[in-house]
């Protein structure tokens, strides 16, 4: 399943870093960041037992990781 979030960042390189950070976060299957439209699409991994992924918790981690990589970035959850 995929969800789209609004983000805030001020350079194209930072957007790439956010993409990398999001992709490395556990629970994220695929992440794509568009600097031009300030959107992030996150595809979540379906847990092994087939239940719905806990998107809120995963996104909290994604946001934290992104902030680590790009201090003045923001993901609007």
């Amino acid at each position: 399943m995929e969800k789209i979030y609004k983000i805030m960042t001020d350079c194209a390189g930072c957007a790439l870093k956010m993409e990398t950070s999001a992709r490395k976060t556990p629970g994220v299957k695929r992440a794509s960041v568009s600097f031009m439209t300030l959107r992030m699409a996150v595809e979540f991994q379906i847990p092994a037992d087939g239940s719905q992924p806990d998107t809120a918790a995963i996104m909290k981690n994604v946001r934290e990781n992104c902030k680590k990589a790009v201090p003045n970035s923001e993901i609007f959850l």
Binding site: I4, S32, T37
Partner: peptide, 9 residues
């Protein structure tokens, strides 16, 4: 649609 278009890279 246009805003999400750039996510399908």
């Amino acid at each position: 649609l246009i805003e999400t278009a750039s996510l399908r890279k």
